[in-house]
Design a binder for these strands. Structure first.
Length: 772
DNA sequence: ACCGTATTCAGCGCG
DNA sequence: TGAATACGGT
C-alpha cells in the first residue's frame, strides 16, 4: 500500500556509487565492496528498492553465508519498508534455502520430505565407522582427511562415479598413499542415502543435480527467482557458483556483492576465482566499486591498503576515507605469550582509564583459538570482563546434540547417527556387542539398523530374550513419540521426549558443576523450542502453505535447527565485555579498538601457508581483514617465545609487521624485529631462576639438540642433511628426503615415508636420524 | 558395562 | 599443555 513511501528519502542516505548500485536492478551487477564501505546497506536498500518498484517479494532471492547476515538484513529491510513485504523475501543462507527446496523436491532424487541433515560431527562418526568396517588404518585414512577429500569432491560437484573414473584424482590419491578414498566416498554416500540423510555438502550438490537434470524444475525456479542477490561472493565454492549460474541464466538479474581482498575461506573450498571471473562470466555486467570507507581512520585505511598491494591476485581498487588521521599503530613486543597477554591487558586498562572507554569498545583478535588462553588469564587477573567467541557453540554441546538426536530419530527412524547416539543413552543395557549384532543383521537383509531392531520378532540375530525386550521397549517408545508429532506442538512433545526418554533425569542426577550446566543447557534448548512454537511462520513455498495447520510441530523445529550454528541465539548485548575471537570470526564486525596478537612467523602467517603462494596471499588477506576491523586504533603485538603443543618455542616476528609502512607506526621500529637480534635473546631463557621453568626449558633444548649434539645456539643449519638421504623419524619410521627448503630455524624437509606419504617437517623440531 | 588411565595429537570453521 | 579417545582391568 505504501509502495512509494520514502523511496527518495531512503536513497538520500546513500552515496553516489551506492545509489547507482541500488538502482541498477536489471542485468548482472558486481558490487566490489571494500571493508567498511556500507556493503550490507547496499544489499538491503537494493531489496527495498526492488520492492518499492513493485517487485513481488516471492520473486527475490537473497543468499548469504551466515544466518546472522540473513537475519540482520531481513530486520533492516523490514525497518525500511515494513514487515508484510519484507517477511516474504526469500532470504537466507545457501544451505537453508536449498534445504527447504529439497524438502519439497527431494523426492525426484529419492529423498523423503523428512530427510535428516547430518552435521560435521555425524559425518565424521560415519566416516570413522566406515574406515573401521573396511579394516583400514585410521592413521593412513585419517577421518578428517577422508572427509576433507569427500567434501572437496562434493563442493566441486564431483560425483562418486566421476571421482572413481577420473585418472588424475586416482593418481593423486594413490601418490598420497590413500588409493581407497574413492571407495570410501562411495560407501559413505550409500550410507547417507540409506539413512535418508544429507550432509551439508549434499544440500548444495543435490540442489545442483535437481537444476541440471530436471528442466521443468530449473524452469520453475528460474521463474520464481527473478532477482537474485548473493552476499560475500568471494566465499562461494564451485557448487554454489554453478547453482547461482543456473538459476540466473534466464534473465541474468544477478547482483553479487563481495570483496576479493577479504576472501579468507579458501581452505574450505571457497574459490576466489568466482569473483575474479565474474566479468568474463557475464559480459554485459556493470561494476560498482564502493571505495569510500566509513569505518576507520586514515591511518588504518592507509596501512591496510599498503599491505594488500603485496598480493598479485586482485581486483584493482582504491579505498579512501574522509575520517580523521587518527592514532598511529602501536607495536608491542613481549618476551613470552604470557607477557604479551599482560601487555595487552594493561594497554586495555590504560585506554579505558585515559579515555573513559567501555569494555565492549575493545576486541582482541588472534589467528588460532589456542592463543586465547594467555589473553584470558591476563584479563582475568586485571578484572576486565571478557567474552570468548567461538569454541564449542551451544548446538555442538553433547547434551544438546543428544536431545536433538532423539528428535531426529523420531522424525526419521532411519537416521543412523541419531540412533547410535541415543539407543543406549541414557544407559538401557543395549551395549556394544548387541549393537554390533544388530548392524550385522541390518547389513545381511540390506536394511537400516532401525528396521533390523524393529523386526526382531521375525529375524534371529542371536540375541537373548532380555536384550530383545530392551530393544523392543526402545523402538516402541520412539514410535509412540512419532505418533504425537502432528498432534502436540513442538515444545510439549520435546518436553515429553526429554522426560520419558530418561535424559532429563540422568542429567538432573549429576550434581557436579558440569552436570548442572548440562541440565541448564537442556532447559535452554527447551526454552528455545517454546519460543519457536510461539513465533509466526515466515517464508513458505506454495506447496507448504496448503497443508499446514496452526500449531508449530517438532519436525518444523528440527528443520530450522539443523542449519543453525551461531552462538548468537540470544545476543546478550546488554553486558559490557571485551571480545576475544579469531580473525575469521571477526569478519564483518567492527570495534573501536582492536588488538591483534601473535604476529609471529609460523603462527601468522601460519606454518602451513608458507609453501604455497596462494596460501600466503590468503594469510595476507586475513591480516587485511584484521586491520580493517578497527575504527579508531589498532595495536599489533608479538612474543619472542610461546608455548606450542606444550613446548616452549622461539618465535620470529611476522613478515607482515615489516609490510606495514613505517609512517603509520607510533614509535620508530626497533631493530629487534630482525632475526639477528632475536637470537641474542636466547640465553635469557636459560638463566631463569624458577625451578619450574628450568624443567620446561631443558625439555625444549633437549629437543633441539637431539638433531645435533652440540649445545644449541638456535642457528643450526642441519647442513648434514641432503636430498635423497634415508632418515628415521620417531613416529613415521624410515623415509627418504625428497626436498629441502629454507634455512636456519625455518629449514624444512619434505620426507617420503612408506605407507604415510610425503610429510613436511620443520627440522627445528623433527627428530630425524640419518641412516645413510 | 563401566571406569580410570594411557596415548595421541594438535588450523582458521559457514551450514 | 590439555582435550579426546583407546585401552585394559574389574
Amino acid at each position: 500500500m505504501h509502495k512509494n513511501f520514502g523511496v527518495a528519502n531512503f536513497l538520500k542516505q546513500l552515496n553516489e556509487v551506492q545509489q547507482q548500485a541500488v538502482m541498477q536492478t536489471e542485468g548482472p551487477v558486481m558490487v566490489i565492496a571494500g571493508a567498511g564501505s556500507g556493503k550490507t546497506r547496499v544489499l538491503t536498500y537494493r531489496v527495498a528498492y526492488l520492492l518499492t518498484k513493485g517487485a513481488d517479494p516471492f520473486n527475490i532471492l537473497a543468499l548469504t553465508f551466515t544466518n546472522k547476515a540473513a537475519r540482520e538484513m531481513k530486520e533492516r529491510i523490514i525497518k525500511l519498508i515494513g514487515s508484510t513485504e519484507g517477511k516474504n523475501v526469500w532470504m537466507g543462507t545457501f544451505h537453508s534455502i536449498f534445504a527447504r527446496i529439497l524438502r519439497v523436491e527431494g523426492h525426484h532424487l529419492g529423498y523423503p520430505q523428512n530427510y535428516s541433515i547430518y552435521d560435521t560431527d555425524d559425518s565424521k562418526r560415519l566416516i570413522k565407522s566406515i574406515i573401521k568396517e573396511q579394516n583400514l588404518n585410521d592413521k593412513v585414512y585419517a577421518p578428517n582427511y577422508v572427509l576433507g577429500r569427500i567434501s572437496g569432491a562434493k563442493s566441486g560437484l564431483v560425483s562418486v562415479a566421476e571421482y572413481n573414473q577420473n585418472p588424475e584424482v586416482k593418481a593423486s590419491d594413490e601418490s598420497a598413499g590413500k588409493p581407497k578414498i574413492g571407495e570410501l566416498y562411495k560407501i559413505y554416500q550409500g550410507r547417507l542415502k540409506k539413512a535418508q540423510a544429507m550432509d551439508f555438502d549434499d544440500l548444495l550438490f543435490n540442489m545442483y543435480i535437481l537444476l541440471r537434470d530436471f528442466p521443468d524444475l530449473l524452469y520453475k525456479y528460474q521463474q520464481r527467482f527473478k532477482y537474485i542477490l548473493v552476499d560475500e561472493y568471494q566465499d562461494t565454492n564451485h557448487a554454489q557458483y554453478m547453482i547461482v549460474k543456473k538459476l540466473a541464466a534466464n534473465n541474468e538479474n544477478l547482483c553479487i556483492v563481495g570483496d576479493d581482498a577479504q576472501s579468507i575461506y579458501g581452505f574450505r573450498g571457497a574459490n576466489i576465482q568466482n569473483i575474479l571471473n565474474f566479468r568474463s562470466d557475464y559480459p554485459d555486467h556493470k561494476v560498482f566499486k564502493l571505495e569510500q570507507n566509513y569505518r576507520s581512520t586514515k591511518t588504518i585505511v592507509g596501512a591496510a591498503n599498503g599491505i594488500i598491494v603485496n598480493n598479485k591476485n586482485q581486483i584493482f581498487k582504491e579505498i579512501w576515507t574522509e575520517n580523521e588521521e587518527g592514532n598511529k599503530i602501536n607495536i608491542l613486543k613481549a618476551s613470552s605469550d604470557n607477557e604479551e597477554g599482560g601487555m595487552v591487558a594493561n594497554s586495555i586498562f590504560e585506554h579505558k582509564m585515559n579515555f573513559q572507554l567501555k569494555n565492549n569498545e575493545f576486541a582482541v583478535l588472534y589467528r588460532t583459538n589456542a592463543q586465547s588462553r594467555s589473553i584470558e588469564e591476563a584479563l582475568r587477573r586485571r578484572n576486565i570482563p571478557y567474552r570468548i567467541f567461538g569454541g564449542l557453540s551451544f548446538y555442538n554441546r553433547k547434551e544438546v546434540k543428544d536431545l536433538l538426536a532423539y528428535f531426529r530419530l523420531v522424525i526419521n527412524h532411519k537416521d543412523e547417527e541419531a540412533l547410535m547416539r541415543v539407543i543406549n543413552y541414557p544407559a538401557r543395557g543395549i551395549g556394544k556387542t548387541t549393537l554390533e549384532k544388530l548392524i550385522v543383521e541390518a547389513d545381511r537383509v540390506n536394511k537400516s539398523v532401525w528396521e533390523a531392531a524393529e523386526k526382531l520378532e521375525v529375524s534371529n540375530p542371536g540375541l537373548n530374550a532380555g536384550t530383545r525386550r530392551k530393544i523392543i521397549e526402545f523402538t516402541t517408545m520412539i514410535k509412540s513419540f512419532k505418533a504425537q508429532v502432528g498432534k502436540k506442538n513442538a515444545y510439549d512433545l520435546a518436553k515429553h521426549i526429554a522426560t520419558s526418554s530418561g535424559l532429563l533425569r540422568q542429567l538432573y542426577e549429576d550434581k557436579s558443576p558440569e552436570g548442572v550446566s548440562r541440565f541448564e543447557n537442556i532447559e535452554e534448548l527447551l526454552n528455545a523450542i517454546k519460543e519457536f512454537t510461539e513465533q509466526e511462520r515466515t517464508l513458505q513455498t506454495e506447496e507448504e502453505t496448503e497443508e499446514k495447520n496452526s500449531i508449530r510441530t517438532l519436525d518444523e523445529f528440527l528443520q530450522e535447527v539443523a542449519l543453525l550454528t551461531d552462538q548468537d541465539k540470544n545476543d546478550k548485548n546488554s553486558t559490557d565485555y571485551v571480545s576475544l575471537m579469531t580473525i575469521h570470526m571477526a569478519k564483518g564486525l567492527e570495534f573501536p579498538y582492536v588488538f591483534l596478537v601473535g604476529l609471529e612467523e609460523n603462527l601468522f602467517p601460519s606454518i602451513q601457508s608458507l609453501s604455497a603462494r596462494a596460501d600466503l596471499e590468503e594469510e595476507r588477506r586475513l591480516f587485511y581483514v584484521a586491520l580493517t576491523r578497527a575504527m579508531k586504533k589498532i595495536t599489533l603485538s608479538y612474543a619472542e617465545t610461546r608455548y606450542k603443543w606444550g613446548n616452549l618455542t622461539i618465535c620470529e616476528p611476522s613478515r607482515f609487521l615489516e609490510e606495514v609502512d613505517e609512517k603509520y607506526i607510533e614509535a620508530p621500529r626497533k631493530a629487534s624485529i630482525h632475526k639477528s637480534d632475536f637470537f641474542e635473546s636466547g640465553p635469557k631463557i636459560r638463566t631463569t631462576s624458577s625451578g619450574d621453568k628450568e624443567k620446561v626449558k631443558r625439555k625444549n633444548f633437549r629437543r633441539v639438540s637431539s638433531v645435533s649434539p652440540e649445545p644449541s645456539h638456535g642457528g643450526m643449519d642441519h647442513s648434514e642433511l641432503q636430498t635423497g638421504m634415508e632418515v628415521e623419524h620417531r613416529k613415521f619410521g624410515r623415509g627418504k628426503i625428497v626436498h629441502l627448503e629454507g634455512d636456519g630455524a625455518n629449514k624444512k624437509a619434505t620426507v617420503f615415508f612408506k605407507g604415510v606419504g610425503n610429510k613436511q617437517l620443520l627440522l627445528k623440531f623433527a627428530k630425524l636420524k640419518v641412516l645413510k
